[in-house]
Design a protein around this nucleic acid. Sequence first.
DNA 1: AAGGTATTAAGAATGATTACGATTTACTCA
DNA 2: TGAGTAAATCGTAATCATTCTTAATACCTT
Lengths: 137, 137
Amino acid sequence: MNVNEAIQLLKDKGYKYTGKRVDMLEFFADHDRYMTAKEVLEGMKTTYPNLSFDTIYRNLSLFADLGILETTELSGEKHFRFLCSREHHHHHFICLHCGKTKEIDTCPMISLDGELDGYTISGHKFEIYGYCNQCVH
Amino acid sequence: MNVNEAIQLLKDKGYKYTGKRVDMLEFFADHDRYMTAKEVLEGMKTTYPNLSFDTIYRNLSLFADLGILETTELSGEKHFRFLCSREHHHHHFICLHCGKTKEIDTCPMISLDGELDGYTISGHKFEIYGYCNQCVH
DNA sequence: AAGGTATTAAGAATGATTACGATTTACTCA
DNA sequence: TGAGTAAATCGTAATCATTCTTAATACCTT
């Protein structure tokens, strides 16, 4: 997923092309890590001093619905990042300090061996938390 | 973990023995599933009509700190349940409708094969979401 | 039984998120 | 190209879960 793909997806779905949406997408492209709504707002304050909460939250949730962003919840706050890949299923190591991620190709679902026969599975989450090399001290 | 073990743990750590704490623990023993603070509050309102949410939240977080309860975050709300076992590491299938769980013995951390060499790991989360037999429709 | 301390109730405060009415902007199609 | 229309945005108020504050109460030790 990149900015152009995301903009194309917005157009295809009939959503409008606005400078703020483009800048939000570029902000995510430039910051390859999980970020909170507040961080996005802060990061865009320089170009749009009067940007409102509503715009950020509405677009974050729109982008997440469209599969442009992926989300996770860290210490009670939603975090967002550009979706790594649509094709390739994987999980993440997440740095609890800076939000940077590392892809983990191991998916535990393939080795369940019928442990959940008879249950309806709608999703799963596998995340590893810790600190990256830059953030350990 | 059961009610008596939990009460003993509270005493050993110097915490006081109060009827509300005992009833909270019994409420968890009687409801073997993930519940929100609000559900616990509602469930205890019959015996303690004036129970304040502060009491609930304070004790929930105390119990979680002492390892009496385990917690997870589902759709933005903290959920609590009696800790299944101290010895035996495992994960959960969680019913998104009723909060009931099923233990999963597969832990993906053992098959990482050095994918995270050089990273400092502080924790991990593996949960499977869906619906149990009673809640599918 | 009394004193010291932990616990509690009641409500106010916080922080993240959502909702709202008014205004502005982007797209459509004549 | 230029209204018309629907969506997007702003500014702010409302909401929801959770935490904090203060004063009163309950538990435990002696």
